[in-house]
Design a protein around this nucleic acid. Structure first.
Lengths: 246, 246
DNA sequence: CAACATCATGCAACATCCTGCAAGAATATG
DNA sequence: CATATTCTTGCAGGATGTTGCATGATGTTG
């Protein structure tokens, strides 16, 4: 348990859960000096997971609600690439998350298409774009601001779509696509299983990461759209996954 | 949890939600001296988030909020009046519409309550306020950005709540409460029928209006909260409706 | 006006941060 | 197998940030 990677995994998990971590307390818990923990946190800060403050670190990925408002240029290129797959008349599953939200905001009017999503923010963006929208209800998860629960999953299972666009918490060569929240994982899986093609949208930092809960094995994924360089997607292309670089 | 930045984040969040904070109480809560909290608030005052006053600090209305305040100042007073009916542990039905949205944004954290709503914007506001939220899904109506349809109505009918807060398109002495969209009318009616008390929130211009579709007769309404002057609500009070003026 | 609470300032004690460095462990290389 | 390299860790130091307290000033209340 005293390997750097193990410590950093624990820290990453807590931070992504929205917890703030305290330096002195962590040093005690891990049985290492505060310097070591400080270095761990600085590393996570480089990766954009933590925000180092005096005495510890705070999560940078605060509830998806706040990230939403900012809007990120990184995601726009991914969204633009995904748009080329969409035609009017299709039924689209749209997951939650900031990358998929960027896609929803970039949608052109599609009067004959139907967007189906468990994410309220995505639903509003689709409606504003001029796409008929069906919002799948349920309990709202605090982490991702997405509807989850049995009702959500079962409602999704009763639908069928041409394309499913999934946000990604982690995508790893052997572990496949994974999510931080178990309930959100079930929702993602239901969308993947009920759609003709499943497309993952993800920014570079998520590649090679394993989030806590497995959603899909890699072979059930039809396409990956990312802004990562080709070298980072090599493990996936060699396994037969189609990758598009934004 | 005693890092300076963490404290300031908490304070910032409360102030941005319109709460006023009290010095002595905060010192107790954080386990630090009042001097420290005073310094925190002074820092936030430099950043334009707080306005220090004797004994604590008050939220400062920022330009973005002020713009909203021009159109919505009246909604805020209605929301404040509605808040007095709400207690932690209740189940609340929240309709769509800007008045109800203002109420959702004004909610304090209610960890044991449950907010149930067919409106995605309201759901996000409740979640951000720290209230567990259930979003009732369905087709998104283009008019009001509210979920409508048979699934929505039937899901609402299977629930029960203590209070239902309904937005109003029209409220007239004989015609009762009415809505512009037929589908939205069914949703409003379902919420009214499944809740203990039904409360209409409405600004002055809606009084005396008949919208296209009837939702409820006046007698099925338990309370009206409005910013209209007493003279405008005379026809309703004489019919036995309880009216509160914001 | 008197009693009291709150505020601003300065200060000393303390905690934390950064940098550099050396010892140990793991891995690579000849 | 021996040696070199890299990585990780803990520690020492000086710099900087933070905290609580004391002091006098200012505001509030009866």
């Amino acid at each position: 348990m005293n390997l750097p990677d193990a410590r950093q995994d624990v820290l990453r998990a807590r931070l992504e859960r929205g917890q703030t971590v305290e330096l002195a307390f962590l040093a005690e818990e891990f049985g290492v000096s505060v310097d070591t923990v400080r270095r761990d946190l600085k590393l996570l800060e480089m990766q954009g997971v933590a925000r180092c403050v005096r005495g510890g670190a705070m999560p940078v990925a605060r509830p998806a609600l706040q990230r939403m408002a900012e809007g990120d240029a990184r995601y726009e290129s991914i969204a633009a690439c995904a748009l080329s797959l969409i035609e009017d008349g299709m039924v689209l599953f749209l997951d939650g998350g900031s990358t998929v939200l960027a896609l929803a905001q970039a949608l052109p009017p599609l009067p004959n298409a139907l967007a189906v999503t468990p994410a309220p923010a995505v639903a509003l963006a689709c409606l504003a774009a001029g796409v008929p929208t069906h919002l799948v209800g349920g309990r709202l998860s605090a982490l991702g601001a997405v509807c989850v629960g049995h009702g959500t999953v079962s409602a999704l299972s009763d639908l069928t779509a041409d394309l499913a666009f999934l946000g990604v918490c982690g995508l790893e060569e052997t572990f496949g696509l994974s999510a931080d929240d178990p309930d959100e994982a079930f929702v993602k899986r239901a969308m993947a299983q009920a759609s003709g093609r499943t497309i993952a949208l993800t920014s570079a930092p998520k590649l090679g990461r394993k989030a806590r809960h497995r959603v899909l094995p890699l072979k059930d994924l039809d396409m990956l759209i990312t802004d990562a360089p080709p070298r980072a997607t090599r493990p996936f292309t060699t396994k037969g996954l189609e990758v598009r670089h934004a």
